[in-house]
Design a protein around this nucleic acid. Structure first.
Length: 237
RNA sequence: ACUCCACAACGGUAA
């Protein structure tokens, strides 16, 4: 069963949801008893495929095996329902989980963000703190994004402080998310301040700066940033 | 039986 799991995981990690799913089906045909690991990978395959009926079907099979309350399964289920555009079902699963680790919370927060529900994402983040679950890098990058989409600049600055306290500000994903958050809020000075501190300015953070200046700033400055980007050797996409 | 090990879930840009 470990080698079957490894095959399924290998495909999902490479974005090959359908192939992964086919291995799961073959496994059933050979009557090999799936484990928790099988289901977490297969649910991820469903997230990639994005087909709700398939995801529900795997959910039911996980229940038959009594795996539905395990953390790895819970987070995979929440993520699967979010990616299959059923925020409702994701919430249902989330509410029923009594064991909610940071990944489960993150999956829910990301789900809200992906559905444009920034306010709900921020509320979820507050609840997470009440439950004394420690946020991690994923939490911070997605909650920064939530602040950006709703223009919650004060809340965003507060998150930024927490990020600094943990020494995570200069991580590519976190710093990039902060740059984008400030850029979306139109506070370009703050965006630039974080941006200039970043040790790795990748194409994403450059793009956020360009998008921010083109929406809230001067067109000439926008072009200037683009030039700077080219000079720095980062390829525009 | 129990414990441990091998395979597993979430994140930033125009969209």
């Amino acid at each position: 069963v470990v080698s079957w799991n490894a095959m399924i995981a290998g495909f999902t990690q490479n974005g090959e949801g359908i192939l992964a799913f086919e291995y799961f089906e073959d496994m059933e045909d050979f009557e090999i008893k799936p484990t928790v690991v099988t289901f977490s990978s297969t649910l991820k395959a469903c997230s990639i495929i994005g087909r709700l009926e398939v995801g529900r079907c795997i959910h039911e099979k996980a229940i038959v095996n009594n795996f539905q309350f395990k953390c790895f399964i819970g987070s995979a289920l929440v993520d699967m329902y979010c990616k299959c555009k059923s925020l409702d079902e994701a919430c249902k699963v989330f509410d029923r989980l009594f064991d909610r680790n940071v990944v489960v919370w993150n999956a829910m927060i990301v789900g809200y963000v992906q559905h444009g529900e920034g306010v709900l994402a921020i509320q979820c983040f507050s609840m997470m703190k009440e439950w004394h679950v420690n946020p991690n890098k994923t939490t911070f990058s997605s909650i920064s994004k939530a602040c950006g989409i709703v223009g919650a600049i004060e809340q965003g600055r507060h998150i930024h402080e927490q990020i600094i306290k943990r020494g995570l500000e200069l991580q590519t994903f976190i710093g990039g998310a902060l740059v984008d958050m400030y850029a979306k809020c139109g506070t370009l000075e703050e965006a630039g301040k974080v941006f200039r501190k970043l040790p790795n300015r990748d194409v994403v953070s450059w793009n956020s700066m360009i998008a921010g200046y083109s929406q809230h700033g001067d067109p000439l400055q926008t072009v200037q940033i683009f030039e700077n980007m080219r000079c720095s050797g980062v390829e525009p996409d």
